[in-house]
Design a protein around this nucleic acid. Structure first.
Lengths: 257, 257
DNA sequence: AAATATTTTGCAAGTTTTTGAAAGAAAATA
DNA sequence: TATTTTCTTTCAAAAACTTGCAAAATATTT
């Protein structure tokens, strides 16, 4: 049906790539042979497909995204940048001492921290994240859940009801996650209820530590949920731009990576 | 079945590993042979899977973990008298109308009710049970969790902190579970924190329904968590003794079975 | 139709990631 | 305690990725 001599348009190729990937993965080399183009071109096409959210690129090839929902489901999000998140969590763990009372926010980066907490003793852990709670169920620490309205997308408890409990607690350190982070606008998220609870917690905590992988830096989301002033320490990975670090230091925010 | 010549991507290998592990354990040596890669690579893959929370590494191999990790104690309990509990839950469902705001207590009998709630529309469901919450995560109902201290044995949130949220809610109907139930002492449970929260909820609810299978009738536990006066309806199975029914009726408690 | 601008493609240099091997540390077993 | 097995760390080679650039293809203008 299409003229086979003429070279294919990139849009046509992209459709062919998606086809070739089927439901599983494909290598660059394989796709390059099948489409009769150079590997460089395949890479560019996959890059474009990744931006469109149709494909997830991995070293050596790409994986087709199964359910192209508007927001990636939690488990997919967690697998993305897993190594960076783990590294950030390892750095964050250094800030936690035995017998601390700490707050764990929602999000996969903070969840990575939750998985490491059996390296400390006798913590009081407060969280609004059901994923973190599930992870800590078996632990010997004292676990307190914020009440509130359940938000399915992030699996967290949010909104005005959380205020009741937050205000009756003292928190030594709060480990916060975020959707977006810029020096100008501070931290931002998609849901107003989520933002409300974040702000509340940061006001109650002795020290606020923001865990943010570099893919979120420079991104602004819908609702502002806190400014730079609320944050004491930013923990990120090594891809964080040097100029951002300098700007943060100027605002008396410690940066670790 | 699979193309053995082509080199596998790490993402593919990880899927194969999860597959190979199935629900049991797998050794490094075994995986190394099956995937035709070095043991070092298998270790690295397992490390990555552990960071993602999909696997638990042990000396010599790895074990697959799946969410929600159900404690054997709890599942055994739930399996016990499962048919009776399901029957009780079916009867309890009749008391729930569309648009109700209801409370779900902890315990396996109430959990059976939670599983049936997609037969109603637009409920506001308040609960202190993480098992119930896990069950209702995907539902379209509005879900509110009581905050408070996490009690591992029952997987519920209990204690003084729950007061903050309970007192700011209105509940049409409360579906309560219990450890023990006698006409003389009312309902009783093992944990003071648990009892505290139960009493609180029953005071705030328009109608209190007790879901109790016959194995718990005549049993008294450590802490009293409510008297007969607090209860409007008792829902049980057909093994409930006739004389108990009469005594309850005399105290204006409706009995269904 | 010719000339020019724009986009796409392939190539190559330099960088990063992955992989397997080996040595020392830690854990299990006898 | 001694011994074996398994784990972690480190290293070097190989594979894959990124970036910049020039040639080719396509689109736009004259």
């Amino acid at each position: 049906m299409s003229q086979c001599k003429r070279k294919l348009l990139s849009a046509e190729r992209e459709r062919l790539i998606l086809n070739a990937l089927g439901s599983s993965v494909g290598t660059i080399a394989d796709l390059s042979i099948r489409l009769k183009v150079s590997e460089a071109t395949v890479r560019r096409d996959l890059q474009s497909l990744e931006i469109q959210g149709k494909v997830r690129r991995v070293h050596g090839g790409a994986i087709r995204v199964q359910f192209p929902r508007t927001e990636p489901i939690f488990t997919e999000k967690a697998a993305f940048h897993a190594a960076e998140k783990d590294q950030i969590a390892r750095l964050a763990l250094e800030f936690i001492d035995d017998d601390d009372s700490i707050y764990l926010d929602g999000g996969s980066t903070v969840l990575a921290l939750a998985r490491k907490l059996d390296q400390r003793k006798n913590l009081t852990i407060v969280t609004n994240s059901l994923m973190a709670a599930a992870e800590l169920m078996e632990s010997s620490h004292r676990l307190i859940l914020l009440g509130g309205e359940f938000r399915a997308l992030s699996r967290t408890l949010v909104g005005p009801l959380t205020e009741r409990i937050v205000n009756s607690l003292h928190l030594d350190k709060a480990f916060m996650g975020t959707i977006g982070f810029t020096v100008e606008n501070g931290i931002s998220t998609t849901d107003p209820g989520e933002a409300y609870t974040k702000e509340l917690v940061m006001q109650r905590a002795g020290k606020v530590l923001l865990l943010v992988d570099s893919s979120k830096i420079g991104v602004s989301s819908f609702v502002v949920s806190g400014s730079i002033k609320d944050i004491d320490v930013v923990i990120s990975d090594h891809h964080i731009p040097e100029q951002i670090v300098k700007k943060l230091n100027r605002q008396h925010v410690e940066v670790i990576f």
